[in-house]
Simulated assay, not measured.
Amino acid sequence: MSTLRVEGVTVRFGEVTAVDDVSLVVEPGVTGLIGPNGAGKTTLFDVISGLRKPSSGRVTLDDADITSLGPHQRSRLGVARTFQRLEVFGSLTVWENVLVALESRRRPAKLAQELLERVGIAEFAGNQADTVPTGAARLLELARALATDPVLLLLDEPSSGLDRAETDAFGSLLQELSAEGRSVVLVEHDMDLVMGYCDHVHVLNLGRLLVSGTPDVVRAHEGVREAYLG
């Protein structure tokens, strides 16, 4: 079980402050990161995954400072991420996409089919990845991330393209993953998914942390309720 800590992270782009002195803790379980467009969610994900260095502050994983480590180094420590824009190998089959991730960790090829079955897209195993529906491609990204056996899983808009039944099944899968001791963080606009399946929620607004707490605490917060939940 791993604990992620973001401590006083600020990210500036010239005169614009995209993330402003954000501190939060992510422990094993399912954690939601919500807020309006432009709140700084994806930028914060970039910092956590190593794609962007913060202007100030630091990131630790199990008390080890990983702020200066690049994405590949963090991946070796068990950090995996999916992206808002689909990042699959379009010319490979769905099965081959997962196999590539397994081989990067020297894990058995037989796990590819098991992972596709677990995320619910085994029927597309032989299909070229750029021909499958958007929802299936999202789940392929998840299967590929799981192939690295992560301790920290960062998911950016993972339910995009899923219907309601698929989203509920996805939420149940996230809870299964957390029960295995993984820390799962999702940036998500589907409030039913966030409030129904997350153990903890952080809300960003204009780059700052507005509130953190259980779904009930966040739902009851006046600013959150007015701005995001209606």
Score class of each variant (00 low, 15 high):
L4N: 04
E7G: 01
E15K: 02
T17E: 15
A18G: 10
D20F: 01
V22S: 05
L24A: 08
V25Q: 13
E27Q: 14
P28W: 06
P28H: 06
P28V: 07
G29H: 03
L33Y: 04
I34K: 10
A39L: 09
G40E: 08
L44S: 04
F45H: 07
I48P: 01
S49I: 07
R52Q: 15
R52N: 05
K53D: 14
K53C: 02
D62I: 14
L69T: 03
R74E: 14
R85K: 15
V88H: 10
G90C: 03
W95V: 13
W95Q: 14
N97S: 02
L99W: 05
L102Y: 12
S104H: 06
R106F: 05
R107D: 05
P108S: 04
K110I: 02
E114D: 14
L116Q: 03
E123A: 13
Q128V: 10
R138N: 09
L139I: 05
L139A: 03
A147D: 09
P150T: 13
L155A: 14
S159G: 06
L162M: 07
A165L: 09
D168A: 14
S172G: 00
L174H: 05
E176F: 06
G181D: 05
L186N: 09
L186R: 08
H189N: 14
H189R: 11
V194Y: 03
M195F: 13
G196I: 04
H202D: 02
V203N: 04
N205Y: 09
L206N: 12
T214P: 02
P215N: 08
V218M: 01
R219L: 01
H221G: 03
E222T: 13
